[in-house]
Computed example of a mutant assay.
Amino acid sequence: MELRQLEYFVAVAEEQNFTRAAERVHISQSGVSAQIRRLEQELGAELFDRSGRTATLTVAGKAALEHARTALAATGALAQAVGEVSDLIRGRLTVGMVVGCTVTPLFDALADFHRAHPGVEIALLEDNSDRLVQAVRAGSLDLALIGSAATTPDGLEALTIVSERLVAAVPPGHPLAGADRVTLRDLGSHPLICMPPGTGLRTVFDRACAAQGLHPAIALEAGASDAMADLAARGLGVAVLSASMAESYRDRLTARTIDDVEIPALLCLVWRDARGPAVRELLLRCRRAFAAPPPVGGGVAPGGGGA
């Protein structure tokens, strides 16, 4: 008994026609018929009643069908299991990360994965969030750490790492430093320092402004929070940052939550639903790494809140 005979048997049973079954398994009708005859000879019973216009299962055929399906399913599972092991022995994993941030838990997860599966080649690429999302959708990236605006990108699965409000960061002595309340309209009176378009923080900010019909002047753009903080500290504008970013510069900047921007800025891992074993293994390690308390000086460093 051969697996291909069981495959042809199931095809004929489901199609109820030898011609359609032959088209389904991509061989000639005579080839299907010959293999079914050999299977019947080996089993000692006819599996189909061929007297009518359709191929109808006999009592013996009905008894055999589920066993044939089970055997084929077991063979498929075996092939998948071996394939997954092979992927984790000599595969490739391509990971994307938002520009200008140091995300220690992600690096820890990559190192843990590499120790467990040294045969898998790891590539790490930086880009802005919009392009990273496009690359994950296209399949050129397996997994990406992105900044996003409150929602998971369509068509992708996500694991949220950070969710926080936007703040205005200014040096001591700035008019906003002593304000009890800061709104988007308040920011319109000052030059602004923002992340570039296509980044999570900028998307949150632009959406909030558009909802109020505001068009604030963006004086300066920088892809890293360090650069934004340096520019703001020198009095060149108000830096629009996430709360955790601004906390890193509290020695030289005062942060005020922007009250009327309620959309949170997210930092999240995104991947496609149809993912391979290497991605599943890395996700498991990422969940552990991000759930663990950060060491002193570790965690999500400046730039990690919404690039």
Rank of each mutant, 00 (worst) to 15 (best):
E2S: 15
L3M: 14
L3C: 11
R4M: 13
L6E: 06
Y8T: 11
A11P: 13
A11M: 15
A13R: 11
F18D: 03
A21D: 10
I27H: 04
I27P: 02
E42Y: 14
E46T: 15
E46H: 15
F48T: 06
S51I: 01
L57P: 00
L57W: 05
G61Y: 02
K62E: 08
A63H: 02
A68T: 03
A68W: 00
A74R: 12
A79G: 03
A81L: 07
V82L: 09
V85K: 08
D87H: 05
I89A: 12
G91R: 03
G91C: 02
R92Q: 05
R92P: 00
T94K: 01
T94I: 02
V99A: 00
G100M: 01
C101T: 08
C101H: 02
T104Y: 11
L106F: 08
L106C: 10
F107N: 08
L110H: 11
D112E: 14
P118L: 07
G119R: 10
E121P: 06
I122W: 12
D127G: 08
V136E: 06
A138R: 11
G147M: 05
S148V: 07
A149Q: 06
T152V: 15
D154T: 14
G155H: 11
L159D: 09
E164K: 07
A168F: 01
A169M: 00
V170T: 05
P172T: 00
G173S: 03
A177D: 09
G178H: 14
T183G: 05
L187E: 05
H190I: 05
M195R: 12
G198W: 03
G198T: 04
T199I: 04
R202H: 14
R207I: 07
A211M: 07
P216V: 02
A219M: 02
A222G: 12
A227D: 12
A227F: 03
A227M: 05
L241M: 06
A243H: 09
A243W: 06
A246K: 00
R252N: 10
T254F: 06
E262K: 12
E262Q: 14
L267G: 13
L269V: 14
V270Y: 07
R272F: 07
R272P: 07
P277D: 11
V279M: 11
E281L: 10
C286L: 14
C286H: 05
R287P: 01
R287S: 04
F290I: 04
A291D: 11
P294K: 09
V296I: 13
G297M: 13
G299W: 06
A301C: 09
P302H: 06
G303W: 00
G303K: 01
G305S: 04
